[in-house]
Every structure is written in structure tokens, then in C-alpha cells.
Amino acid sequence: VQTVGQWLESIGLPQYENHLMANGFDNVQFMGSNVMEDQDLLEIGILNSGHRQRILQAIQLL
């Protein structure tokens, strides 16, 4: 089972590990259960829309 940090590294966005972990997104399986939306990522400080889309697309593959 991948950690959130390993998963972010695999999609090329390791800089957001602290954003996700500090806001309770600390379990890759949980994130894959379709609980995260674009607005959630924006609210936790991921401002780059391309990065948000990449995260959301990768979540669909979990």
C-alpha cells in the first residue's frame, strides 16, 4: 500500500504532501473512495488548476 507521499511522488506532485496530510487526507485508499473534489483541493491550498486536475484524475485510478 502506497503512502500519500509515495502516491504524490508517482504522479509528479510531491510538493502537496503536507497540504493533504494536514487536512486529513492521509490514506490513499480513502482518497480513492471518491470523497475528494476540485473545491476540496482548492480549499486546502492547491491553487494550480492543472495540478488539481492531475490529482483528481489520478484519484480515479486508485
Results as ranks from 00 to 15, higher is better:
residue 1 V to E: 06
residue 1 V to I: 13
residue 2 Q to C: 09
residue 3 T to C: 04
residue 3 T to Y: 04
residue 3 T to L: 04
residue 3 T to A: 05
residue 4 V to N: 00
residue 4 V to E: 00
residue 5 G to C: 07
residue 5 G to I: 08
residue 5 G to D: 05
residue 5 G to Y: 08
residue 5 G to K: 15
residue 5 G to H: 09
residue 6 Q to P: 02
residue 6 Q to M: 11
residue 6 Q to G: 07
residue 7 W to R: 04
residue 7 W to I: 06
residue 8 L to R: 01
residue 8 L to A: 03
residue 8 L to V: 01
residue 8 L to T: 01
residue 8 L to E: 04
residue 9 E to T: 13
residue 10 S to E: 11
residue 11 I to C: 04
residue 11 I to S: 02
residue 11 I to Y: 01
residue 11 I to F: 06
residue 11 I to P: 01
residue 12 G to D: 06
residue 12 G to A: 04
residue 12 G to T: 02
residue 12 G to F: 02
residue 13 L to T: 02
residue 13 L to R: 01
residue 13 L to P: 00
residue 13 L to F: 05
residue 14 P to H: 06
residue 14 P to C: 04
residue 14 P to E: 09
residue 14 P to K: 10
residue 15 Q to E: 09
residue 15 Q to M: 07
residue 15 Q to I: 03
residue 15 Q to V: 01
residue 15 Q to P: 00
residue 15 Q to D: 04
residue 16 Y to K: 00
residue 16 Y to F: 00
residue 16 Y to V: 03
residue 16 Y to N: 03
residue 16 Y to T: 00
residue 16 Y to L: 01
residue 17 E to H: 06
residue 17 E to C: 09
residue 17 E to F: 06
residue 17 E to Y: 08
residue 17 E to T: 13
residue 18 N to C: 09
residue 19 H to N: 15
residue 19 H to I: 15
residue 19 H to G: 04
residue 19 H to C: 13
residue 20 L to G: 03
residue 20 L to W: 00
residue 20 L to Q: 02
residue 20 L to C: 05
residue 20 L to E: 00
residue 20 L to R: 00
residue 20 L to S: 02
residue 20 L to M: 14
residue 21 M to S: 07
residue 21 M to F: 05
residue 21 M to P: 03
residue 21 M to D: 01
residue 22 A to R: 12
residue 22 A to C: 08
residue 22 A to S: 13
residue 23 N to M: 12
residue 23 N to H: 11
residue 23 N to G: 10
residue 23 N to P: 04
residue 23 N to T: 06
residue 23 N to F: 08
residue 23 N to C: 11
residue 24 G to V: 03
residue 24 G to T: 00
residue 24 G to Q: 04
residue 24 G to H: 05
residue 25 F to N: 04
residue 25 F to I: 12
residue 25 F to M: 11
residue 25 F to T: 04
residue 25 F to A: 05
residue 25 F to L: 11
residue 25 F to K: 04
residue 26 D to E: 11
residue 26 D to Y: 08
residue 27 N to L: 13
residue 27 N to Q: 11
residue 27 N to S: 15
residue 27 N to A: 08
residue 28 V to F: 09
residue 28 V to R: 05
residue 29 Q to K: 13
residue 29 Q to L: 11
residue 29 Q to V: 10
residue 29 Q to Y: 10
residue 29 Q to C: 10
residue 30 F to Y: 13
residue 30 F to I: 15
residue 31 M to Y: 08
residue 31 M to H: 06
residue 31 M to F: 14
residue 31 M to N: 07
residue 32 G to I: 13
residue 32 G to F: 13
residue 33 S to L: 11
residue 33 S to W: 08
residue 33 S to C: 10
residue 33 S to A: 14
residue 34 N to R: 15
residue 34 N to F: 12
residue 34 N to W: 15
residue 34 N to D: 09
residue 35 V to T: 14
residue 35 V to Y: 08
residue 36 M to R: 12
residue 36 M to F: 11
residue 36 M to E: 07
residue 37 E to Y: 09
residue 37 E to M: 09
residue 37 E to S: 14
residue 37 E to D: 12
residue 38 D to H: 07
residue 39 Q to Y: 07
residue 39 Q to H: 12
residue 39 Q to M: 09
residue 39 Q to W: 07
residue 39 Q to V: 09
residue 39 Q to F: 06
residue 39 Q to I: 10
residue 40 D to Q: 10
residue 40 D to N: 08
residue 40 D to K: 11
residue 40 D to W: 07
residue 41 L to S: 03
residue 41 L to D: 02
residue 42 L to M: 12
residue 42 L to T: 09
residue 43 E to I: 05
residue 43 E to P: 00
residue 43 E to V: 07
residue 43 E to A: 13
residue 43 E to N: 15
residue 43 E to H: 12
residue 43 E to Y: 07
residue 44 I to H: 00
residue 44 I to W: 11
residue 45 G to H: 04
residue 45 G to F: 00
residue 45 G to W: 04
residue 45 G to M: 05
residue 45 G to I: 02
residue 45 G to L: 00
residue 45 G to T: 03
residue 46 I to H: 01
residue 46 I to D: 00
residue 47 L to I: 13
residue 47 L to T: 15
residue 48 N to F: 03
residue 48 N to M: 04
residue 48 N to R: 04
residue 48 N to L: 03
residue 49 S to L: 10
residue 49 S to R: 12
residue 50 G to Y: 04
residue 51 H to Y: 02
residue 52 R to I: 00
residue 52 R to K: 01
residue 52 R to M: 00
residue 52 R to V: 00
residue 52 R to P: 02
residue 53 Q to A: 13
residue 53 Q to M: 11
residue 53 Q to F: 09
residue 53 Q to L: 10
residue 53 Q to K: 14
residue 53 Q to C: 09
residue 54 R to L: 07
residue 54 R to H: 06
residue 54 R to C: 07
residue 54 R to D: 06
residue 54 R to T: 09
residue 55 I to K: 01
residue 55 I to Q: 00
residue 55 I to A: 03
residue 55 I to S: 01
residue 55 I to T: 03
residue 55 I to Y: 03
residue 55 I to D: 02
residue 56 L to D: 00
residue 56 L to S: 05
residue 56 L to C: 06
residue 56 L to T: 05
residue 56 L to Y: 06
residue 56 L to P: 00
residue 57 Q to E: 14
residue 58 A to E: 14
residue 58 A to K: 06
residue 58 A to Q: 08
residue 58 A to R: 04
residue 58 A to V: 00
residue 59 I to R: 08
residue 59 I to S: 08
residue 59 I to P: 02
residue 60 Q to W: 06
residue 61 L to K: 14
residue 61 L to C: 14
residue 61 L to H: 14
residue 61 L to S: 14
residue 61 L to G: 12
residue 61 L to R: 14
residue 62 L to W: 07
residue 62 L to C: 07
residue 62 L to I: 08
